[in-house]
């Protein structure tokens, strides 16, 4: 599965409005927590690690280091 980065939402404005609605009335902390849960739910839906790594890289704007940090 390759990561779709071309427009794919059936109705971008409806999704954007739904996303904002989901955050209405939340504190900053709650909003961050909701986003984190959302990321996990969407990641599980996608499932494929290569696709998810491509999405992480796209979101970060650079490539994300692949190996776990074993030293610091």
């Amino acid at each position: 599965m390759t990561l779709t980065l071309t427009p794919n939402l059936q109705n971008p404005d409806d999704f954007y409005a739904a996303l904002l609605r989901a955050h209405d009335g939340l504190s900053e902390e709650e909003t961050h927590a909701l986003n984190a849960r959302l990321v996990l739910i969407l990641a599980n839906h996608i499932g494929d690690l290569t696709t998810l790594e491509a999405a992480l890289a796209a979101a970060r704007g650079t490539s994300v280091k692949k190996a776990d940090a074993t030293t610091q």
């Binding site: 961050h32 927590a33 984190a36 849960r37 990321v39 996990l40 739910i41 599980n44």
Partner: peptide, 20 residues
Amino acid sequence: ALFRDAVLDLVEQQPFARPM
């Protein structure tokens, strides 16, 4: 901590989060 807590928030209702 944010993602760890997100996993723990989800586990009760969402089976997909339990293996995490």
